[in-house]
Design a protein around this nucleic acid. Structure first.
Length: 945
RNA sequence: GCGGAGAUUCCAGAGCGGUCAAAUGGAAACGCCUCAAGAGCGUUUGGCUUAGUGCCUUCGCAGGUUCGAUUCCUGCUCUCCGCACCA
């Protein structure tokens, strides 16, 4: 039987839509359930990653509907921020890479490509594409409530403005300074994905240490050295400047600094007033003395060609003992008199310089920098790469393992890790240093301009660092249900660690800050309470946006103020109060550290406690056949390809069978292919066997009924926990296995009522996973309404009987053993004897169990048992059984003799039937004169004659 | 480095102190059934086996607790996710 899945899919999509069965309205007489898939960013087609995260609320929604809940499952689209706008810009610039991305999506028409130069077209194009793909795969969404989120959606725009006004009222939006990676051409921060080079490079905080020139006649002139290690200032022996560069003297905030030109250019963006005074030739500086901050000791300025004017200030403080560069620099200059002569330096004075060690660390000598050079066999300051490595290693080691030595005054004995912060603070306070931000590496913007660090000084922040707010957010976290719970520590950590978040942008798509129109609201800040928009989305978007203001949202969502005079206002309030908060918002685990935690904060700031979130669903990242999904590996799967290749149902089941919890789910191509045929078999079996069978009621029917009830119970539990993988396995594979055994045991004459009940139950349980085929079968077996509207099967606790399972297991093992023995003897026996153990053996087992629970000590157990009269007479056998049971575990002895015997009688008939033999099977109790005295409890032995 | 999650047999993945050579599913092999393929059914997929209700070696590595550890503890190694102004 081959089934035309695509035809079935179209048919039911159409019917669902026509009957509008997924459209949900507030109904105070019904329990509500609001679930959601975090709105996706619409700049490409949806792929497997979307599919998995989407399927979790989808299955959950369908499950809750079956349970009788009124389910709201809406879907909106996200487009704020910079990706779309930069992509559009790149299309305009005809950038190869960007054009290829569109071409790979099948967009080749020149006319159409031109349209993609407009950011709005991206939204216009991709939203329908997403919608189409979601519908094709059978997502049960209430599409009336969709919206998208840019300033182009005026209603949503009003909503976001309201949100920010509320945050501002509570002083959660603050103004401040912030270092950002900045492109001077685009006049925008340069995010990781808008870089053509330098992904992952970040601003790094340097300390600018001030070294006043000693004995300077007129005014205080300061040489400024940039360092990451201010704590090493106790070990400074000299300064390095690059003799091949010219430095600049400039007035910086009322001081006269000498630094490299490159540094000066950067400083301009870092909140400093700068006036260039003059160029300084290095000859003017070399051989002079400067004084060290704190100690005021005087040290020489020496030439070091390794000083890079583009890094830091181009002036380096030399700490030979703890910096490999400085160590080698000092060695070189001491060994080469020519250098001193060349720059007219006092060679004797240079030779007096001795490294000062100030940090002690296990496994290193007095001068760790020397060790580091020797370890890597570095001989010269020209070996830049090796030196860089050595430096990094040593810095790391000293930072975490180093202890400040005696010569560091009050820092003596402290860890470097702590001392560093302390020293930094002190130097800043006494104006002996400044903060300077430098990139950790070269960053090139997509526009091919080299990026710098800029201190933005009128930047708006959402103050997630606010301590009281953190406490309230924690309260919201305590209340929320997490699927799975094990994500909770990550949330706790994030709340603690979160600092003020820059929420304003100069460019991009989005809503303008209501009180400062030059700024746009950044896209992770405008996407925190957006789920509150769904309950009213379909009404509000019918209203003239001019009429929407803060008072409208105050009234609907906060129950504040007089009822505004606009259409649908009562409905909107009812809808909101009925549906909110959401019960399950599904997203990838990567959103914990921003979006989801932000959402918690924002809910507590804006809404009363009853509207704080009820549930988050977290999941991992999809892999394909065990490998990371990526375009370069060629295993990148788009949602749109699934229905044609595997059918929507098989795809849905495959992805849900791929994983659960926060593990990365795996998409198994082979499984997807083979599952399609399994669905065909399901169809055939159900349609051919529904309402057929016998009216007899036998032990085996009781067993099957028990298994069915047990399965329903388990599956219900796993569905509640969103452990959809386990649930799907239990309802499909495990139940089918039971069904096969049942059919075998009844010679394909199942009980009619029971089998029909089974088919119905299984179909309903499967329908959240494979809705199309289930609808089709449901209709074929004569059901009138949609299976989507059926009732989730209930289980009857009284019908679950574990004993029946044990009996069936026994029958199965006897059967298997019998077959095995018959195979061995290779004759057709006339009769067969099955021996079950004597009663005393069972008694022994029970006694063993009791004794074990008392002492758990084998020696004592054996002693206690052997002194009992009833076991004495079986002396040796008792020992044997005891040894065996103690070795293999004694937990399995539960049966009592008679039950065992009865079950075997039951098995006997079955064995006869199954083996299609007319043989005589005798059941006997274990007896002395038979060779069968080995028979152990729980396992009959067989003798064939 | 910090925070979080992990490491199981060909693969995915159960396992929560004895019923474990380890569920379930994929895949593969063989057999039955068939003209044939698929489906279905059965067997097999750590090693040894005198074939036994047998023995040995396995659950990242190394120790420990226990009569007993895949399961508990300690240390180590490795993998994945996050560490921000970006969706």
């Amino acid at each position: 039987m081959t089934i035309d899945f695509q035809q079935i899919e179209r048919k039911w999509q159409h019917r669902w839509e026509k009957a509008r069965i997924f459209e949900a309205d507030a109904d105070i007489n019904r329990k509500k359930f609001f679930c959601h898939f975090t709105y996706p960013y619409v700049n490409a087609y949806p792929h497997l990653g979307h599919f998995y995260t989407l399927m979790r609320p989808e299955v959950f929604a369908r499950f809750r509907r079956l349970q009788g809940f009124n389910v709201l499952f809406p879907q909106a689209w996200h487009a704020t921020g910079s990706p779309i706008i930069t992509a559009a810009q790149r299309v305009k610039e005809k950038e190869e890479k960007q054009l290829k991305i569109l071409k790979d999506m099948g967009i080749t028409d020149q006319e159409q490509l031109k349209k993609f130069e407009n950011p709005e077209y991206w939204i216009e194009y991709f939203i329908p594409e997403f919608t189409k793909d979601f519908k094709a795969i059978g997502i049960s969404t209430d599409w009336r409530r969709s919206y998208f989120t840019t300033e182009l959606n005026q209603w949503y725009d009003k909503f976001i403005r309201w949100q920010f006004n509320k945050l501002k009222e509570k002083n959660y939006v603050i103004k401040g300074k912030f270092p950002v990676v900045w492109c001077t051409k685009c006049r925008n921060p340069v995010s990781d994905h808008s870089r053509s080079e330098g992904e992952g490079e970040t601003p790094q905080e340097f300390t600018l240490l001030k070294f006043p020139l000693a004995d300077h006649a007129n005014k205080r002139i300061i040489l400024v050295a940039a360092t990451l290690r201010p704590e090493t200032l106790f070990g400074i022996t000299n300064l390095w400047i690059n003799p091949k560069t010219t430095y600049i003297q400039a007035k910086v905030n009322d001081e006269h600094w000498i630094i490299s030109k490159e540094c000066l250019d950067k400083l301009k963006f870092q909140d400093k007033s700068i006036e260039i005074e003059k160029e300084i030739k290095t000859a003017e500086l070399l051989g002079k003395y400067v004084s060290i901050p704190k100690s005021n000791a005087k040290v020489l300025i020496l030439p070091g060609e390794f000083c890079n004017p583009s890094i830091g200030s181009g002036i380096v403080m030399s700490v030979p003992s703890h910096a490999p560069h400085d160590w080698l620099g000092l060695v070189e200059i001491k060994n080469d008199k020519a250098i001193a002569e060349k720059y007219h330096l006092n060679f004797a004075a240079i030779n007096l310089i001795t490294p000062i060690s100030l940090i002690s660390m296990e496994g290193y000598s007095e001068h760790p920098a020397k060790d580091a050079c020797e370890k890597r066999k570095i001989k010269s300051t020209k070996q830049l790469e090796l030196l860089e490595e050595a430096k990094k290693d040593l810095y790391k080691a000293e930072f975490f393992a180093g202890i400040m030595k005696e010569n560091t005054g009050i820092y003596k004995g402290r860890k470097v890790e702590e001392a560093k912060e302390q020293i930094k603070k002190e130097l800043l306070q006494s104006n002996q240093s400044n903060v300077f931000y430098e990139l950790t590496g070269r960053v090139i913007c997509r526009c091919l301009t080299q990026s710098i660090i800029k201190i933005v000084d009128d930047q708006w922040f959402i103050d997630y660092g606010n301590k009281e707010w953190k406490e309230i957010a924690k309260k919201a976290l305590a209340k929320i249900r997490l699927y799975p719970e094990l994500s909770r520590p990550q949330f706790e950590y994030t709340i603690d660690w979160l600092k003020a978040w820059a929420c304003s942008r100069e460019e991009g798509l989005g809503t303008k800050l209501p009180w400062d129109q030059k700024w746009l609201i950044e896209s992770l800040s405008d996407s925190t309470i957006y789920l509150a928009f769904y309950p009213i989305a379909h009404y509000i978007q019918k209203i003239n946006p001019e009429k929407i203001n803060d008072l409208v949202f105050d009234y609907i969502m906060l129950d504040k103020g007089k009822q505004p005079d606009i259409e649908h206002i009562a409905e909107m309030k009812d809808e909101f109060q009925y549906w909110y908060p959401f019960d399950f918002n599904s997203s990838g685990k990567d959103l914990i550290q921003n979006h989801l935690t932000f959402a918690l904060f924002n809910h507590t700031a804006i809404f009363p406690e009853k509207y704080w979130p009820n549930g988050y669903g977290l999941n991992g990242w999809v892999t394909v056949d065990g490998k990371k999904m990526s375009k370069s590996l060629g295993n990148f799967i788009l949602m749109r390809d699934l229905p044609t290749k595997y059918s929507a149902d098989a795809s849905r089941f495959t992805i849900m069978n791929g994983g659960e919890n926060m593990d990365d789910p795996n998409w198994d191509n082979q499984f997807a292919s083979s599952f399609k045929t399994k669905l065909e078999q399901l169809y055939t079996f159900c349609t051919e066997n529904y309402n057929k069978g016998s009216d007899e009621w036998r032990n085996i029917d009781q067993w099957f009924e028990s298994r069915l009830n047990e399965s329903i119970k388990k599956v219900t539990y796993f569905m509640e926990e969103t452990l959809f993988r386990t649930a799907s396995q239990k309802m499909f594979f495990e139940l089918n296995k039971a069904l096969r055994w049942y059919l075998k045991r009844t010679n394909n004459k199942p009980n009619k009522k029971l089998l029909s009940h089974f088919i119905e139950s299984q179909l309903i349980m499967l329908s959240p996973f494979t809705p199309f085929i289930c609808e089709e079968i449901w209709e074929t077996i004569g059901k009138k309404d949609f299976i989507a509207k059926a009732s989730w099967p209930l289980y009857d606790e009284d019908k679950i009987n574990k004993q029946l399972d044990i009996e069936e297991q026994l029958i199965e093992t006897v059967l298997n053993d019998t077959t095995a023995v018959m195979d061995l003897v290779k004759i057709t026996p006339k009769s067969m004897k099955l021996f079950v153990a004597d009663s005393w053996k069972y008694d022994l087992c029970i006694a063993l169990r009791t004794e074990y629970n008392k002492t758990k000590n084998p020696g004592i157990i054996i002693k206690n048992i052997m002194i009992r009269e009833e076991f004495k007479k079986h002396g040796e056998d008792v020992m044997k059984i005891m040894q065996k049971t103690l070795k293999s575990g004694i937990m399995n002895i539960l049966h009592n003799d008679d039950e065992e015997y009865n079950t075997l009688c039951n098995a006997k008939q079955y064995i006869e039937a199954e083996l299609k033999l007319s043989i005589e099977i005798l059941l006997e109790k274990d007896s002395e004169d038979k060779k069968s005295q080995q028979a152990l409890p729980g396992k009959p032995s067989i003798i064939i004659k």
